[in-house]
């Protein structure tokens, strides 16, 4: 799993790739929470288009990011969900809790 970060205006974009599982979800959690809580990014966008697999600990990291962003008054947006990522968010009934867009263009325009 790899994480890279881009900055565009007042938006922080995380590009995640590979599998997010119990081995690396703490790294996702740290990166996302740091950006929201320490850097006070007004909008955090997570690009999941290169994520093949995400487990419950990865979902938990995204939920923590969402909660932290709500606490800080910022927005937390996901885009590019693979079939597998969409399935786990649907199974956990979280798909409607997150702000989800098909692609980066839509996410940035929102």
């Amino acid at each position: 799993m790899q994480i890279s970060t881009r900055y565009h205006d007042k938006t922080t974009i995380f590009d995640l790739s590979g599998d997010i599982d119990f081995a690396n979800s703490p790294e996702v959690r740290r990166s996302v929470l740091s950006e929201i809580q320490e850097n006070r990014a007004p909008r955090v966008v997570v690009n999941l288009s290169e994520v093949r697999y995400i487990d419950s600990s990865g979902v938990a990291s995204l939920v923590e990011g969402l909660k932290a962003s709500r606490d800080c008054g910022s927005r937390f947006i996901l885009f590019g969900l693979s079939t597998a990522a969409r399935e786990v968010l649907q199974l956990s009934r979280l798909i409607k809790v997150f702000e989800v867009y098909e692609n980066e263009e839509q996410a940035m325009a929102s």
């Binding site: 419950s56 938990a60 939920v63 923590e64 909660k67 199974l91 956990s92 009934r93």
Partner: peptide, 17 residues
Amino acid sequence: PLEEIRPGGLGLHFIRQ
């Protein structure tokens, strides 16, 4: 319960489903 929006506790739910 899935009504709770909080991290954790989803793994067993995924297994049973």
